[in-house]
Design a protein around this nucleic acid. Structure first.
Length: 617
RNA sequence: CGGGAAGUAGCGCAGCUUGGUUAGCGCGCAGCGUUCGGGACGCUGAGGUCGCGGGUUCGAAUCCCGCCUUCCCGACCA
């Protein structure tokens, strides 16, 4: 049996425990503060775990990541796997609380779903086979397959199958904040791309598409609000649905050169799309031209568009370019675009419903009757799927290969000389091209995807049996939406955005502490508890630097850690009548003396953004 | 998975080409002293399986082979 066997023994244990607590408290702070408020005894630099670094570890290249390491926010444990030290953990929790707030405001309810799933669940949705090695699979002691969750559509759908029976129970918005694991082939840039990560996932359940549209729009607005409150400039771009499937998706992009996605933007009309799906306005094809008879021309050693145009004295927009692709299931695809354009493989992949495309091997190219360097879709027939860009389909009399070494064909026309299986936009949009909406010049920028929203439709409901009984008595699949934000990635992005050459500069909304108080010397250490007590009773979090360090060390650490309000109390400040105060966001190092009685209002104003810029004493 | 680079003390690095005392330097850390408002100074000190395993050699941080790990570029992706 554990614990105290008798009331006397129990009492002794209890007293020992209390003495222990007193000793622990006494270790913490000067005696005169004891016994009044316990809470402000917990926010001291000496209690934090981890020490600041003068130099960032080698290999940390992005500036925000370096500062997170130097400021003792995070430590790397393995490739794409991080520990969050107390400071970062507080920032994470503050970000999560903003998310909770906005999700609740949008009508959501928080719950928690497991991060280890039976493999069986993923087999039922079909994704056990389709997602590939980024999902970690393992077996338990009974050899039952398990997976580490990389997302939770399956669980939500499976729960809905049992919990939702009637149209009266819809719509619903559920969310959770949960750890996930994705065995990414290449984690990078610190927290920007990791393998283990925390995500806020929300899922909407609706009766129909119209309901989904309403919730989707509501979530979009909630996301805008979350990023606004985190003070991260983010734009929403339409995006590829990828492995999620579904009909429409937006990504929330923080534009920054460290980002991994390329965004195509139009400054004059606001058009913004991920390059995976972006379109550019195509030139008007010369449809007035009459189709002319095919002519064979000798073109020795002319295997590129460039040399072909030089030889024939034409421009690349008069040629057709062939790209040979193979799907993961072995299907062969011949993509045809005009010679002056590039194929967008994501668009092709979506058209043929392939998760992955690779270039064909030379053998595969020959097996469909084509000759590399002298290729055209003519004569391919049923041996491959021919996908023709809409511009090529509209164009007349292009130059294409003759599928014969050293020969090209003039006056090739889609539909007459070969039959496209699909005609669609398959070209890649790029900077410099005209905007598909307004015609202005597009430009590209790199972006970090900090969040996304997907209209999933009924795919998961159908495969997992999540149906409800409609008003008319018929059984209908639940229409789902999925909405994610990476918490750590958001933290990383904020640290990239809000910093200077001295350190981090957290927005007040997510800062680990509102106030960083440097207590200098004996006088500072003596005066600090009262100051902290007053700020904390006004609901202001304070991190006190109670270390007996030289002032320079304390100041530089404070700027590195980057709390929004920096206070200094010392013999000198007290002699001047109070506490030195300044904003971390201020450019210079000047501060002003704030009398003790005005400190709370000074700090409150600063945190509400009513006190902008630095102050000169 | 392709291409490149790197693993030596908590962090940053030198030493390796041309094998040879006890493996160094800066920062940090501990003790003592002097300092004390923008990363102080002096003295003393602790801290290393030189990524791991094998080989060559009288002798390996150093040369050879294999492996592991991490970073960067690409492919891939929240």
């Amino acid at each position: 049996m554990l614990g105290a066997a008798t009331p006397q023994a129990h009492k002794r244990t209890h007293e020992r425990r209390r003495a222990h607590l007193r000793a622990g408290a006494a270790l913490g702070w000067a005696g005169e503060a004891m016994g009044r408020k316990v809470s402000f005894l917990r926010m001291k630099m000496s209690q934090l775990f981890g020490s600041t670094l003068r130099e960032a570890p080698a290999g940390a290249e992005t500036p925000g990541y370096q500062l997170l390491l130097r400021g003792a926010y995070i430590r790397q444990l393995g490739q794409g796997i991080f520990s969050y030290l107390p400071l970062a953990w507080r920032v994470m929790r503050r970000i999560e609380d903003i998310m909770r707030d906005e999700m609740n405001a949008a009508g959501g309810v928080e719950m928690s779903m497991p991060m280890v799933h039976p493999g069986e669940l993923w087999k039922r949705s079909g994704r056990y086979e389709t997602v590939g090695p980024e999902m970690v699979r393992f077996v338990d002691r009974r050899d039952r397959p398990l997976v580490l969750a990389m997302t939770h559509e399956e669980v939500v759908a499976s729960l809905s199958a049992t919990e939702i029976q009637s149209w009266r129970q819809l719509p619903k918005l559920v969310y959770h904040i949960q750890l996930k694991f994705r065995d990414d082939p290449r984690p990078r840039a610190g927290l920007l791309r990791v393998r283990e990560f925390t995500m806020k996932d929300a899922y909407t359940l609706d009766r129909d598409e119209a309901g989904l549209d309403v919730q989707y729009e509501r979530l979009h607005l909630a996301y805008d609000e979350i990023f606004r409150r985190c003070e991260l400039p983010v734009i929403a771009v339409t995006a590829d649905v990828g492995m999620m499937g579904g009909s429409l998706a937006h990504e929330f992009m923080y534009l920054n050169p460290i980002g991994e996605d390329t965004i195509v933007l139009c400054d004059s009309c606001g058009y913004a799309q991920n390059r995976q799906v972006a379109q550019a306005k195509k030139p008007v094809a010369e449809v007035t031209e009459e189709p002319l008879p095919i002519e064979r021309v000798s073109t020795p050693d002319t295997t590129t568009i460039e040399t072909l145009c030089k030889l024939l004295g034409i421009s690349p927009d008069r040629t057709a370019k062939i790209v040979f692709l193979a799907t993961d299931s072995g299907g062969l695809v011949v993509a045809v675009v005009r010679g002056d354009m590039q194929v967008n493989e994501t668009k092709v992949g979506n058209l043929v419903h392939a998760a992955e495309l690779r270039p064909m091997t030379v053998e595969e190219i020959r097996s469909i009757g084509c000759v590399p360097g002298y290729a055209s879709p003519i004569g391919v027939g049923d041996r491959a799927m021919v996908i023709v860009d809409d511009l090529v389909a509209e164009s007349r009399n292009l130059v294409a290969g003759a599928n014969e070494e050293g020969w090209h064909l003039l006056n090739v026309n889609s539909g007459r000389d070969f039959d496209p299986d699909i005609v669609a936009d398959i070209t890649a949009a790029d900077g410099g091209q005209p905007c598909v909406v307004c015609g202005s010049t597009l430009r590209t920028e790199r972006g970090v995807e900090v969040g996304n929203i997907f209209k999933l439709g009924t795919r998961y409901a159908e495969s997992l049996g999540a149906n409800y009984l409609a008003e008319d008595g018929t059984e209908q699949p639940i229409v789902m939406g999925s909405y994610g934000i990476g918490v750590g990635r958001l933290l990383a992005s904020i640290s990239e955005e809000h910093r200077d050459d001295r350190g981090l500069r957290w927005p007040a909304s997510v800062a680990p502490f509102a106030v960083h108080l440097c207590a200098l010397g004996d006088e500072g250490l003596e005066a600090a508890p009262a100051i902290v007590g007053e700020l904390e009773s006004a609901g202001i979090d304070v991190l006190v630097d109670d270390r007996r360090e030289r002032p320079g060390v304390q100041f530089t650490d404070a700027e590195l850690i980057g709390c929004p309000v920096l206070l200094t109390v010392s013999k000198r400040s007290l002699a001047s009548g109070g506490v030195e105060a300044k904003l971390r966001s201020a450019e210079g190092r000047e501060s002003e003396i704030v009398p003790a009685g005005e400190l709370v209002s000074w700090v409150s104003e600063a945190l509400e953004g009513r006190r902008l810029g630095g102050r000169v004493s």
